[in-house]
Amino acid sequence: MSDAEPMDSAAVWLAYTTVGNEADAQTLAHRLVQEQLARCVTLLPGARSVYVWQGQLETTPEVLLMVKCTDAQRHAMKMVWTDLHPYELPELLFVKADDGHAPYLDWIRGV
């Protein structure tokens, strides 16, 4: 999606990211909600990521954050992500929530 594409005010998105510990997860979640970049953040400790970083195979314990947001919040989050996230190369993946419990989706939208 390009920055020039119009926003869809009805769209709800799930964003996924990981951080290395519970303290960083709490800090990031609170900032996202307090700065109105997300409506809700769910923290899932106990994740383990396996990946290659700088030529080395890594296995790292992490906390997964599941972020619920609107399209406007998604755009704003992308603009400041590297300033908010503690990692050098922070994960940020968006999945559009095409369906769900209508009252919950309305709450995410602020309706």
Score class of each variant (00 low, 15 high):
83 D>T: 13
78 K>A: 14
89 L>M: 12
46 G>L: 12
34 Q>D: 15
1 M>P: 06
2 S>V: 12
33 V>A: 06
77 M>W: 12
108 I>N: 04
97 A>C: 12
99 D>W: 11
20 G>M: 03
23 A>E: 14
77 M>T: 13
72 A>M: 12
8 D>N: 15
17 T>W: 05
1 M>L: 09
83 D>R: 13
75 H>R: 10
94 F>E: 05
44 L>A: 05
64 L>E: 07
59 T>H: 05
18 T>P: 00
78 K>S: 10
27 T>D: 14
91 E>K: 12
28 L>D: 03
109 R>M: 04
32 L>W: 08
91 E>T: 04
101 H>Y: 12
65 L>C: 02
26 Q>K: 13
76 A>E: 10
20 G>A: 10
9 S>V: 08
65 L>F: 05
5 E>F: 03
101 H>V: 07
90 P>A: 08
29 A>K: 04
80 V>K: 13
67 V>F: 04
66 M>I: 09
18 T>N: 04
58 E>H: 08
58 E>S: 04
64 L>Y: 06
102 A>Q: 15
111 V>Y: 07
44 L>F: 06
16 Y>I: 03
48 R>H: 11
30 H>G: 13
93 L>W: 07
48 R>Y: 05
53 W>P: 07
60 T>N: 09
21 N>V: 04
66 M>P: 01
35 E>D: 15
7 M>F: 05
37 L>K: 05
80 V>H: 12
35 E>R: 11
89 L>V: 15
85 H>C: 09
4 A>R: 05
94 F>H: 07
103 P>I: 03
88 E>I: 04
9 S>M: 14
46 G>E: 09
89 L>A: 06
12 V>Q: 00
67 V>S: 02
25 A>N: 02
46 G>M: 02
33 V>T: 11
2 S>N: 14
60 T>A: 15
70 T>D: 00
96 K>R: 13
21 N>D: 15
73 Q>G: 08
55 G>R: 11
22 E>V: 04
50 V>D: 07
69 C>G: 01
18 T>E: 02
38 A>M: 07
11 A>P: 05
84 L>P: 00
26 Q>H: 14
95 V>G: 08
26 Q>P: 01
